[in-house]
Amino acid sequence: MAIWNFLHKMASPPHFYGLAAKIIPWFAVTGIALFVYGAIGGLFYAPPDYQQGDAFRIIYVHVPAAYLSMLAYVVMAIAAGIGLIWRIKLSHAVAASAAPLGAWFTFLALVTGSIWGRPMWGTWWEWGDPRLTSELIMLFLYFGYMALRAAIDDTAKADKASAILAMVGAVNIPIIHFSVEWWSSLHQGATLVRADGPAIETTMLYPLLAMIFGFSFLFGALLLQRVRAEVLFRERRSRWVHDLVMPAGDTQ
């Protein structure tokens, strides 16, 4: 029962609103520190790749962006599902907040991939390539999710309809991950998540891991702040928001 009381308290909007404000600075500082270490290590200390030369350094922003684009979708789909099944309002706020961030990271993964493809493959874009196409479909899933929410005025109805879209679209996540194995693709195979362990030297690997974790902490901070805004909006008629936004003694 203690765990239920704890979870119930965590999901209460005013408690979450205050707690998130305390967590955000720690996430932001950790994320920035890892990002700076990873960027310096990746740009200047990692040796050039034996095949790709210095062009491979794009991996330090491309892979974390692609990873976060998928993580944001998983967060969105799971939060939407929890909101739908257990009717936890905070859950829907998390799902709605993850979408625009996911769309930005997907955009970043697509553009950095395109810029990497130009010198390595000789083309900015290859129509029909499974990895590129499935990642582009995810960008449209994010846009569709946000457009659907924006089109429905009633928040509860928007939550339900968009949750179903998010969960159905989740089928695209394994397709993105395995696309380079299932079909022939210009895109190279996995570097880190392999059955035989990461295929990369440690001076190359550590900055990459730092970038992935750094991006994750920054995403965490951004998501928490977005959820705070979303919670404030959803609870705008409640007593606690009233007390929060009105300065003490304001009788106006």
Binding site: A39, L43, P48, G53, D54, A55, R57, I58, Y60, V61, H62, A65, P100, L101, W104, F105, F107, L108, V111, T112, I115, W116, R118, P119, L218, L222
Partner: peptide, 25 residues
């Protein structure tokens, strides 16, 4: 970066811009 500088730096620059936009938003 052995001729790849324009590609590498534009990717890092764009990343920074996207993170700043997300933060401001």
């Amino acid at each position: 970066m052995g001729g790849y500088g324009v590609y590498v730096w534009s990717c890092f620059g764009l990343t920074l811009i996207v993170i700043i936009i997300c933060t401001v938003q």
